[in-house]
């Protein structure tokens, strides 16, 4: 009986730790959000790149306040980093002269456990539900050779 109780206690503790780890993973995950302002085809229709759009993001990485707006012209792509399970995005679509704001779109997204997201701004402007595109992968990094044995910490 004592052994069973001990086993149950240990299993419960392990489950609690796993749950805590999963929760930390969920709330602490950093996401790369790629903002894509390129023309795109969907269902045989062409959605043209926006002339100019300013995108701001609100997440834990910005202290839960709107960050500096990112200016994207047609065919631009940029990346913004967010932290936490959800973030808000505000897209201010400017007229062709780049002066007045024609439309403001505000959405809240939940990347959850996903690492990266790519958002198509022309599809978002067209109010289509499939504006989340497959992630293009990480930012390229410089190559580095393998460390030699003496560099690898040998005394």
């Amino acid at each position: 009986m004592k052994t069973i109780m001990r086993f149950l206690q240990r299993t419960a503790l392990l489950a609690l730790l796993l749950a805590l780890g999963t929760w930390l993973f969920y709330i602490g995950r950093e996401h790369q959000i790629f903002l894509d302002n390129k023309s795109i085809e969907r269902d045989g229709k062409n959605f043209r790149a926006l002339e100019q759009v300013n995108v701001s993001v609100k997440s834990k990485s910005h202290g839960d306040a709107w960050g500096e707006p990112i200016e994207l012209l047609a065919r631009d792509r940029d990346v913004v980093v967010t932290v936490g399970p959800k973030f808000s995005l505000k897209a201010e679509i400017l007229d062709s002269m780049g002066g007045d704001v024609e439309r403001v779109i505000e959405i809240t997204l939940e990347p959850g456990f996903q690492k990266d997201l790519m958002l198509s701004l022309p599809l978002l402007n067209a109010a289509r539900g499939d504006f989340i595109l497959p992630s293009p992968g990480g930012v390229p990094v410089p190559e580095e050779p393998a460390p030699a044995a003496e560099q690898a910490g040998n005394p």
């Binding site: 780890g21 602490g28 950093e30």
Partner: peptide, 16 residues
Amino acid sequence: DWAIVGIPGMVLAMMV
């Protein structure tokens, strides 16, 4: 590698 940042990242590193 998992891109966990802030205090959650630190605590998770301790848990690992």
